[in-house]
Structure formats: structure tokens, C-alpha cells
């Protein structure tokens, strides 16, 4: 199967988790990895650089209409919504924030679910709002795999608890288990 993809959504308290995931993801990870993370104002710039220091795979902030390639982590650019088009390229939008968020995790997840259907794995990490819950539900509705970081493992549990309440969740995992899951996907 070459058409799989993984999408990760996170907000407050997710930065260290994402760093750990990227530092332990296999170098040969064979699928695209989408990162939709809310950013604090002071890390609007230099976020790619900060994540790249420890990452095993290349991290890019995609431009509008860039084609999606495997083995790359794509970070939703600050102040844009990141959408995944069914023809496997990106579309950016400067439409208004949703639930005060731009990028909106719900939007990225929903568009990725629509494009990748049951080949998508969606992962919701720590956060202080409920963005991502409806997006994860969309992943579930298209029969994709849904994973939520264990709220007990989260710095802030609002986002993961909201996702668990809203969507059919296949796995509730610790950070280490998420890393193991991605390693297993690599085969």
C-alpha cells in the first residue's frame, strides 16, 4: 500500500511530544506525515528549524499546490489552514479562523480523511481546546485509523478528552506507544 498517510494534530503541551515522535520515527518512514499544530505567537517563525534539529525525516512547510511526497513531515504554515486535496496536493487557505484556530486541526483532518479514506491514520495529542475532535470523527467516518494520546500522558487533557467523546477512537496510546505504532507501520 503506497497511499497511506498519517496526520497529527496538537496544541498546548504537544510540542515536546512531537519532538519525541520526530526524533524516533524511522528514517525510512514510507508515508507522508502531516503536522497540524497550533502555535504560540512567539514561535510563529523558526518552528520548522526547531523541529528539524532532532527530526529523523525532512520537515517542510508546504506551499500552496505542492505535491505530497512520502517520507516527509509537512507542517501546516502559521496563519493558514492546510487542506489536502483529493489529487494528493496541498491547498492553503487564509479563510477565517475556526474555533479561534488557524491552522484548524478539524479542517486539515477532515480534508485528509476525504482524500485518503481508510488509508489515513489520525492522531490527536495534548491541547487546551476542542479543535481536532470533529476532524478525528471525520477520519473515523471514512474508516481510517484513529489514535488519541492517553489524556493521562498529556500536559493538558482537554483536546484528547474532547476527541474521545466525539469520535470512535481505535487506540488510546502513550507517546512511546505512538512511536512504536509508527515504527510498526514502517515495517
Amino acid at each position: 500500500m503506497t497511499n497511506k498517510a498519517v496526520i497529527i494534530g496538537g496544541s498546548a503541551g504537544s510540542f515536546q511530544v512531537v519532538i519525541r515522535i520526530l526524533s524516533q520515527i524511522p528514517k525510512s518512514f514510507p508515508y507522508p506525515l502531516f503536522l497540524c499544530l497550533h502555535r504560540l505567537k512567539h514561535v510563529r517563525e523558526g518552528f520548522v528549524e526547531a523541529l528539524s534539529i532532532k527530526s529523523n525525516i525532512t520537515i517542510l512547510e508546504p506551499n500552496d499546490k505542492d505535491r505530497i511526497k512520502p517520507g516527509i513531515a509537512y507542517l501546516a504554515p502559521s496563519n493558514y489552514h492546510l487542506l489536502i486535496e483529493p489529487e494528493f496536493h496541498f491547498a492553503l487557505s487564509s479563510g477565517e479562523p475556526i474555533n479561534h484556530s488557524r491552522p484548524s486541526i478539524d479542517l486539515s483532518f477532515a480534508s485528509a480523511a476525504y482524500a485518503y479514506r481508510n488509508n489515513l491514520t489520525g492522531i490527536i495529542l495534548s491541547g487546551a481546546n476542542k479543535d481536532g475532535a470533529l476532524g478525528l470523527k471525520a477520519v473515523a467516518d471514512f474508516e481510517g485509523t484513529t489514535i488519541v494520546q492517553d489524556p493521562n500522558d498529556c500536559q493538558i487533557r482537554t483536546m484528547t478528552e474532547s476527541a474521545i467523546k466525539t469520535a470512535r477512537v481505535d487506540h488510546v496510546l502513550s507517546t512511546d506507544q505512538i512511536i512504536a505504532f509508527l515504527a510498526k507501520m514502517t515495517g
Binding site: 499546490k65 489552514h81 487542506l83 486535496e85 483529493p86 491547498a91 487557505s93 479563510g95 479542517l107 480534508s111
Partner: peptide
């Protein structure tokens, strides 16, 4: 128009 963006706007 870019399909996903248009769809999103129409939904709104």
C-alpha cells in the same frame, strides 16, 4: 477554483 477551499466556503 481550488476544490477544497471552495467546498469549505460553501459549507460555511
Amino acid at each position: 477554483y481550488s476544490e477544497k477551499s471552495l467546498m469549505r466556503r460553501l459549507e460555511k
